[in-house]
Design a protein around this nucleic acid. Structure first.
Lengths: 425, 425
DNA sequence: ACAGTTTCCCGTAAATGC
DNA sequence: TGCATTTACGGGAAACTG
């Protein structure tokens, strides 16, 4: 009933938006001999980065803080910086130079931490820095930034190769598909199964998808538009992830959304099924859309219908489960009918979606309750008859995901280990 | 189809939101003898305001600028400050003191302008200041702030009585109703007619509404809640104004929304009408809602039905004219019917609303177009039979509005006359 | 605890830069 | 001129603060 502007940016570490607060923490891994003075840490953004080539930022807020003993650990020294905020350095003399090579979400930056103390007459400098960071100025750049973070962490173990996107390596479909599934398990709670990944692989690679060690270029993954479309593969996939997060979470987690199915496969699956059998599929032509396709039998002929995809605007007016419950087709004035009977392969609609329906009748007495229902008015249809195939399977176990996620987060803006790179003095 | 977050705050002068840019202009009304040096003007916010009692703000940005000759006028000196921004002064030592008396939207502030020049050995100081300003920190405070601006400018000619809301005068219903109608003509393009104002008067004053010189208190207008409600009269009225601005502009300007009608009056008007006659009315129980009520004849009995009010959330999913076109009542499974036939008094629905319908069939081929339609499922109803009354009339001419509006704006944050209060030197 | 107020920040639109 | 990027700010929600 009311979800106009919900939050995004839910735990995407290593991406910082200018003007928005972020937090970082450093921990001292070596045990120091008792020091009775305060150990001050200074945080610097883009330290040592020569001007030109890339944008540069600085920390607008307080950037020094004293280390403290962590209560809950074994007496480690650590310090957490909160409310840090980044702002771009603007050069009066346009020292911007020849960027253009990299887009802003391909620029890699870093946070440095420095501390210095003296023990027994010996001055020791400590310094460390974060994994590469992406700086954006608007949430619209978040998908692109996240693509960079994924690619970097998937393909290199180098802690600080800021030139990574100057010549980014390719990823095998093997590696990539695993990461994509992880995205869905982390952000939507359920990963992708084999069939779904196969469809994605074919979409990205065409026929090569069968050999799982086929290499995918960075450009193909997130920069080039899909042929005939105005968006790249990752932009498309991410728009679906966002749609799930905001509007389809329960339905997705119940595994009721087949989602990634080619239209050919869809017909193959549905053609021998009971009339009124339907499946849910994401739009390939538009960003962030979901549609349902159902099968009808028209005296011997098999007919398929797909509804115009629902996007976030529609879904925020009416939850998707309710759309499925209430969808009606009006054919030339006859009694409207809901053509959706069985969720593929054969689950009665209400059995599947019943627990997800919203209980609507509001009953504010003097008024007649009213609701929106989705309808289609039909006059003419189309049909088809394609090949054959098999049915979906349980999702790929996103087993090692937790481990990787931890890795991704361990050395991030929330937690950066301060290693003693002691350069004596 | 797409209007999730549209802009508000459309020309409400004298209200400044912290952190948001505003513009002001000062013009020198006296002709100075030729001066060959630059005349610098300094803008100060809350100059001379003693700390305590009220919040204090300062101008975060550049606050001095050199006057320049206006090209388009007769060589007047003027200066326009752009990109000014306000920030609250925070006192470390909580010198806030005993506020509590006034709400923030009742606090009045001012912008001062100072200039100083020397001619023939004589130093002349110029100083002036704006009409009282209201400072808010969130758009949610805009309605309250605007109420203050209206009340002040309606009831006093003093240029700078910052203590006005310490003991605000009352307004006669005569004065107030005129201002309310102006609000609708300025912001929605059509003012309020006599019947509408009568309903509002009765709502605000009860029986006293008949004597048009009845006095309305500031508190009753915008501070006290309407009995039994959780909002004040002005908050309620303003929520309707916003609803019109964003979702009902065309329908309102065609005069198809009776809007302000008591339920009793509504029944009186409808009871002798053709079945299916309906009228549009704003909700009195909820903020920013509109409903339609239609009359039915049920073998001799007259029956009235009102739909649950549509609010901005629903209306942004489906334009109001389309709701009227598509509204259906489903009674126990029979063919759905649109009960709305004639807009009161007797205009065929499509004749009135036809030009305002959206042409929806989107026709993206492979898909069946789908739309949302508003429906009610009926099981049991209620009815009634009240007294009699007359019908609506053309709106009150908002004749002098332009003049007043100009007055309101003339001495505002956009245009503040700099008068030579020359205090010699 | 709580209500009035401010801060935070997403997401759209507009402005800006290249 | 068009595209990439930043800025602006409404609006909802969380945080603050007496």
């Amino acid at each position: 009933e009311k979800q106009p502007c919900m939050p995004t940016h839910p735990q995407k570490p290593l991406i910082i938006k200018t003007g928005v607060q972020f937090t970082t923490k450093v921990r001292l891994l070596v045990k120091l001999p008792e020091v009775d003075y305060q150990l001050k840490v200074k945080t610097t953004f883009d330290k040592d980065l020569p001007p030109g080539r890339v944008r540069q930022f600085f920390i607008l807020t307080n950037n020094t803080k004293v280390m403290d003993i962590e209560d809950y650990s074994n007496g480690c020294l650590s310090v957490e910086f909160r409310h840090l905020q980044l702002k771009e350095k603007k050069y009066i003399n346009g020292t911007k130079g020849l960027e253009g090579l990299l887009s802003v979400t391909e620029e890699l930056h870093s946070l440095s931490f420095e501390a210095c103390f003296t023990v027994q007459g010996l001055t020791i400098d400590l310094e460390t820095c974060s994994l590469p960071l992406v700086v954006i100025s608007n949430v619209s750049q978040l998908p692109g930034g996240w693509a960079s973070v994924m690619w970097y962490n998937l393909l290199t173990d180098e802690p600080r190769n800021l030139a990574f996107f100057g010549n980014p390596p390719r990823a095998s479909w093997n590696q990539l598909s695993e990461v994509l599934s992880w995205q869905f398990s982390t952000f939507a709670g359920r990963g992708l199964n084999k069939e779904q990944l196969t469809m994605l692989g074919e979409k990205l690679l065409g026929q090569h998808a069968s050999c799982s060690d086929y290499q995918v270029s960075w450009s193909k993954f997130s920069k080039e538009n899909i042929p005939g479309k105005t968006f790249s593969f990752w932009m498309w996939l991410d728009s679906i992830l966002e749609l799930i997060k905001k509007h389809l979470l329960a339905v997705w987690n119940e595994n009721y959304i087949m989602g990634f199915v080619s239209k050919e496969m869809e017909r193959t699956l549905l053609k021998d099924r009971e009339p009124g059998t339907f499946l849910l599929r994401f739009s390939e032509s538009h960003l962030g859309g979901i549609t349902f396709t159902w099968v009808e039998h028209d005296n011997g002929d098999v007919k398929f219908n797909s509804v115009e995809p629902y996007t976030k605007n529609r879904l925020s007016a009416l939850p998707f489960a309710d759309i499925i419950r209430d969808y009606k087709v009006i054919s030339d004035g006859v009694v409207p009918e809901n053509p959706l009977k069985f969720l593929y392969p054969d689950i009665p609609k209400d059995e599947a979606f019943g627990p997800l329906y919203n209980s609507q009748p509001s009953k504010v007495h003097p008024y007649i309750p009213s609701t929106l229902i989705p309808i289609s008015e039909l006059r003419s249809n189309s049909s088809a008859t394609p090949p054959s195939c098999q049915s979906p399977e349980p999702p790929m176990t996103p087993g090692e995901f937790d481990m990787l996620n931890e890795h991704l987060c361990l050395i991030d803006i929330d937690t950066v280990s301060l290693q003693a790179l002691a350069s004596g003095g």
